[in-house]
Simulated assay, not measured.
Amino acid sequence: MRDFRWPPPPDGGPRTYGPGPTAPRTGRPALPEPMTELVTTPHGVRLERLVTGAGEPVTVFAHGLATGIAATRPLGSAVAGTKVFFQFRGHGRSDAPAGQWTYTDLARDLRAVADLAGATRAVGASLGAGAMCRLLAESPERFERAVFYLPAVLDQQRSPAVRERLAELLDAVESGDIAAVAGVVSAEAPPAVRNTPAGWAYLRQRIDQLMRDGLAAGLADLPDQVAVTDTADLAAVTAPALVIGCQGDDQHPVAVAEALAAALPHATLHVYDKPAVLWTNRSDLRDRISGFLNE
C-alpha cells in the first residue's frame, strides 16, 4: 500500500513502500514565501498583506478558514493588474483581537484592505467568499466584479464535519506536535498526490507556516457564524459575479454555491464534477477566473 507518513523521507522526496520503485528521489521544494508587510487598518487591526503586479485594475484576494495568502495566490496567477493578498485576523502575522469574531469583523478586514489598495474587484475563497457576501450585503456597489470560489457558508451554519476538522487542526497546532499537524493537513490534498513531489512541497509549506505563525483560538467560533442572515440582502448587488463550486466537497457544499448564484442578480455559476479543484483542474480554474476578471 502507498500512503502518507511523517516525518518525510530523509532525501526530501516522496517515498513509497511495498512493491514498486525504492530508489531515492528528489522532491521538488516549495517556492520560498515572498516578503509581506503589516498594514494598520482604520478599525485598528493590523493585517498581513502582499501586493504583486502593477497598474489597473486592482483585485483583492480573501483566503479560506485556517489557510492564508499562499492558498489564494494560484487563483490570481493570470489576473491582470495589481493583486492584493492578505491574511484575515487570527491568521499568519495578522492581529488576533480579543472577543468573538463574526463575518461582520471579517467583512471589515476585507473592506479595509480593499479600500487601502483602491481595489475594484475581489476574489473570495471559502471563508473569504463569506466575508465578501457580508460586505456586499452592506455595500452592494463596492466591487465592479466578484469571484466566489468554493463558498462554504451563506445563511446557515457550516456542517459539524467542518467544526470537527478545525478543532482538530487548532489542537494540533497548539500542541506543537509537527506529526499531528501533518496528519491533519495531509487530508487537504487528494490521496493521489499526497506522496508526490507536489504533495510533499504543499505539506511542508503548510506545516512551516502553521508552526511559525500558529492559528488564533478565536477562529474556533467562526463555523457557528453565518455570512448573511437573509439571502435577500444580496439582491441589490450590481456587480457581475462568478460563483465556482464543486461536487463531492463536504467542506464546501455545492448547494451553497447554487444558493449564492441564485441570490446574486448577475451571477454565473460553474460547478466542477469533483473536489480538490486546485489539484485536478488548476489550469481551467486559472483561465476561468482570469478570463472573467480580465474582460
Rank of each mutant, 00 (worst) to 15 (best):
M1P: 15
R2Q: 12
R5S: 15
P10L: 15
R15P: 07
T16S: 15
G18D: 09
G18N: 11
G20Y: 01
P21C: 07
G27M: 13
G27P: 03
R28Y: 09
L31C: 03
E37C: 07
T40W: 01
T40Y: 02
L47C: 05
V51K: 03
V51N: 05
T52W: 03
A54R: 13
A54L: 05
P57D: 14
P57H: 13
T59V: 09
F61H: 10
F61R: 14
F61T: 13
H63C: 07
T67L: 15
A70P: 10
L75D: 09
G76K: 10
V79S: 14
A80V: 09
T82K: 11
V84D: 02
F85P: 10
F86H: 09
R89T: 02
G92K: 12
R93C: 14
R93D: 14
D95P: 09
D95I: 13
P97T: 00
P97S: 05
W101K: 12
D105C: 08
L106N: 08
R108S: 15
D109Q: 07
D109W: 04
L110F: 04
L110V: 14
R111F: 12
A117T: 11
A117G: 12
A119I: 06
A119W: 06
T120C: 10
T120D: 14
R121Y: 03
A122K: 04
A125T: 13
A125I: 02
G128T: 01
A129E: 04
M132S: 04
C133I: 01
R134L: 04
E138H: 01
S139G: 01
R142P: 00
F143C: 08
Y149D: 02
A152G: 03
V153L: 04
V153A: 09
D155P: 00
D155T: 03
V162W: 00
R163C: 03
A172H: 05
E174Q: 14
G176K: 11
A180S: 05
A182W: 02
A182Y: 02
G183A: 04
V184R: 06
V185N: 05
S186Y: 03
A187E: 13
P191D: 11
V193R: 10
V193K: 09
R194Y: 02
T196Y: 00
P197Y: 03
P197L: 07
A198T: 05
A198W: 00
R206Y: 01
I207N: 08
D208K: 12
L210W: 06
M211G: 05
R212H: 08
R212A: 14
A217F: 05
G218W: 11
L222K: 11
V226C: 12
V226S: 09
T229P: 00
T231M: 14
A232G: 05
A236G: 06
P240I: 01
P240N: 08
I244Q: 10
G245R: 06
G245Y: 03
C246Q: 15
C246T: 07
Q247R: 09
V254I: 06
A257E: 02
A257S: 15
L260R: 07
T268M: 07
L269A: 02
H270D: 12
H270Q: 10
D273S: 11
K274G: 10
T280F: 13
R282Q: 13
S283N: 08
D284F: 05
L285R: 10
S290A: 15
S290K: 06
G291R: 07
